[in-house]
Design a protein around this nucleic acid. Structure first.
Length: 465
DNA sequence: GCATGATCATGC
DNA sequence: GCATGATCATGC
């Protein structure tokens, strides 16, 4: 496009000026020699054809003078007209040995990615990737995003601590809020050695979570979202999760009815507890899940009720899956695995005593990789196998019995109906052996109440927070 | 009483 | 109209 420029010598202003000139253009329009784009090649394409940079794998940023890293990433348009990031933004690969003795500001993450210049293009499933359109450019200087930087710094320290502790093989994306260590390799067999442990760990790269990328892309109509007005000093000292735990601890052991009176809540709905939690955090008329921090970090609030016999009555439900989709997946790229590896939960615990439920606090949790890749994998694998064989219905009648894994079959999860009613169905890829039916009631994966109870007992066993 | 199947309530 | 979070109902 511009052959007389040298990307390595451009200033930030010049980079952005050139960047603006390719907005609303397709890759085909930018490209002049008809070259194709291979997987992951969008970045190289822009480097080569727009900025005259020869792709390399330096530890320094692409634009040397401007100390700015170039990124090109897809968004997709949802049915409701809004946009969301299609993927996490993958940054540099982590060398566990080299990162060991670094601090945040000397880390490979910071030296390469402290300033990002990002192009978002619109992904569309049925067209050639050369026809994707560049929708937007965005310059991100993390120094200027104070709250984000505080959280990202803490995220980096969380990852760093696992490396230091010889636990790189236990790293999970959901350990952290905005900055994550995602797997990056040809396959799950891309293992690397790590310091302080004989166990080999999956190759990982720093990345910005999809939820965070979605917020970056949608930054303009910011009035729709509300920051939690977290205090910078407090955030730096405690970290986001402890800050939330501390704030809500003020209301420990108060009953639901007392809290409703205190906060003047009139609703009788099922999300009552979420409204109570919002009020504890000082949010007026805003759901916690709609706040800036929860949106960026993809934290899902869940309410847990402990009964008087110290048991949890209900299992925990998740999204339904399509029988036709799940059999096309491999475990490594399955929706289920991705969901649990990248989602953090905020559990708020209410314990029953007499006729009321008493607030026992809030804890954050994400599923350990070991549970994901063992027990959860078993349930998923068994389910996929049954669908592929058309082995679904065991006994048909007023109450239908099915072959899917039960809560008693596995310590972590099981499969159960999750639908409007029995007639609310998805198509089966293979007709059911017994009934020849080509559809079946929508199902979802559920976490066993016994598993949740174990987690709760563990999370709430130390009363230091 | 528990495990599993069935369905409700809300919000977008 | 449907996804999502949550809870109810039935049968062993």
């Amino acid at each position: 496009m511009l052959n007389n420029i040298d990307g390595s010598k451009l200033t930030i202003q010049e980079i952005c000026e050139i960047g603006k000139s390719i907005l609303n253009k397709s890759f085909r329009e930018i490209n002049e020699d008809g070259s194709i784009i291979t997987k992951g090649g969008f970045g190289h394409f822009i480097e080569r054809h727009v900025y005259n940079i020869t792709p390399n794998s330096d530890s320094s940023p692409d634009f040397k003078l401007a100390k700015t890293e170039l990124k090109v990433t897809p968004v997709r348009k949802l049915k409701n007209g809004t946009y969301s990031a299609k993927e996490r933004l993958v940054l540099n690969i982590i060398n566990y040995h080299e990162e060991l003795n670094k601090t945040f500001y000397t880390s490979s993450f910071w030296s390469k990615n402290s300033i990002l210049y990002i192009f978002f293009y619109l992904y569309q499933p049925d067209i050639s990737n050369l026809d994707y359109i560049i929708l937007k450019d965005l310059l991100i200087d993390f120094q200027e995003l104070k709250t984000d930087l505080t959280i990202i710094k803490r995220d980096w320290e969380t990852i760093h601590k696992k490396i230091k502790d010889g636990r790189a093989h236990e790293i999970s994306e959901a350990d952290t809020l905005y900055l994550a260590a995602c797997t990056k390799g040809v396959n799950s067999q891309s293992l690397r050695t790590q310091p302080n442990s004989p166990d080999r760990a999956k190759q990982r790269a720093y990345s910005l979570k999809p939820s965070y990328m979605t917020r970056l892309f949608n930054k303009e109509p910011i009035d729709k979202y509300i920051d939690m007005m977290v205090d910078g000093v407090e955030l730096e000292k405690l970290g986001f999760e402890n800050l939330i735990v501390n704030r809500t601890n003020k209301y420990l052991n108060k009953s639901q009815s007392e809290l409703i009176r205190l906060f003047n809540i009139s609703s009788k709905s099922k999300n009552l507890n979420e409204l109570i939690l919002s009020s504890m955090l000082g949010l007026k008329n805003t759901k916690i899940s709609k706040t800036e921090e929860f949106l960026k970090a993809n934290i899902i609030p869940k309410t847990i009720r402990l009964e008087e016999n110290n048991k949890i009555k209900e299992h925990m439900s998740f999204n339904t899956f399509k029988f036709t989709d799940i059999i096309e997946e491999t475990w490594e790229d399955s929706y289920l695995r991705d969901y649990f590896e990248s989602t953090k939960f905020m559990f708020s615990l209410f314990e029953k005593q007499g006729n009321d439920y008493f607030f026992r606090g809030v804890r954050f949790w994400n599923m350990p990789i070991h549970d994901i890749d063992n027990n959860l994998h078993d349930v998923w694998h068994e389910t996929v196998n049954l669908i592929k064989q058309g082995k679904i219905i065991k006994k048909s009648g007023k109450i239908t019995r099915n072959f899917f894994p039960k809560a008693t079959d596995n310590p972590v999860a099981h499969v159960r109906p999750h639908a409007k009613n029995k007639a609310d169905v998805y198509p089966l890829p293979v007709p059911d052996q017994l009934t020849k039916s080509t559809t079946f009631t929508k199902q979802s994966f559920w976490l066993n109440n016994s598993y949740i109870l174990k987690i709760i007992n563990h999370l709430f066993s130390d009363n230091s927070n």
